[in-house]
Amino acid sequence: MVYMGQLTEVRPGHRLREEVIGFFPTTIRALLGQLPASAWSVLEEVRLRVHKPLILSRAGGETMLTGEGLPTGDPGRAYRVSEEDVVRTVELVTGSSLYAVEDELRQGFVTVPGGHRVGLCGRAVVEGGRVRTLKYLTGVNFRISREVQGVADQVLPWLIRGPRTMYNTLIISPPRCGKTTLLRDLVRQISNGVPRLGFTGLTVGVVDERSEIAGCYRGIPQRDVGLRTDVLDGCPKAEGMMLLLRALSPDVIATDEIGRREDVEALEEMLNAGVRIVATAHAASVEELGSRPVLRDLLQRHIVERFVVLEYRHGPGAVRRIIDGRNFETVEAIQCSR
């Protein structure tokens, strides 16, 4: 066991409730508003599907709500989402501006003020073999994004190399394990500096393609990402990295969910320029990462010096493993009971 840092949830349950229920129509607002703050602080997703029960999911389970807003496990008694509910939710999460989120819609989700990600499902409109947009939206998955400061405390000592430098780091985990939360806290601490480890802050450039890391609204980060951080919001990763490199001379570049060939090429470009990298990728393990052609390259060329692997056991970010990028041996396993 390693030193357990102090974890602080930046927005406690009741504040999260106020922030999130504004994105739902009054019918659903009434149900969600009755959930106690304690339930809100563990809530991860709110799922709406036309004519199906409203489902809330939290770490390790899910629950439905009756028409009176009480938790139930019986789908027969659960509140059924109407078409109107979904249409209104879509209106609210897109700010009544479907046209303004066209690009995001093509990827299937939009990011709302506060940094929450809302997945949308419906019928795809295809043009020339590519998804142009979605219509007849029937499913909504509101994923509540949390900002937990201090989650990076335990992994940081393994990622820092000296007072002004760090290892190229890749965070890998399956979805919903707190990848982005960890990345955000890492960025904040790298940017602010960590006196406890004798680490002075570095200039960090964040390419935030989906506005999830900094949760920018109109370009201003809604999350604390540190004092030496520049956020390039809504920009495609590969292009964004090059732009940051040219324009803002960062020491470290951070980005979320790399996976395309051009992302990896851009990462190499960063290395050539002497910039350090912190990134995340979808995978359950380093081996799985190796089975993806694009990312295999990253492994074979030993570009990444430290892997942080997250596993979903008792909740997000529960188990972490730090793996050396040269010999793929586990440097440290951290068990944390959050």
Partner: peptide, 11 residues
């Protein structure tokens, strides 16, 4: 709406 894709409220 068309050229600046400004969100409706702002537009």
């Amino acid at each position: 709406i068309v050229y600046a894709a400004t969100p409706l409220t702002e537009a």
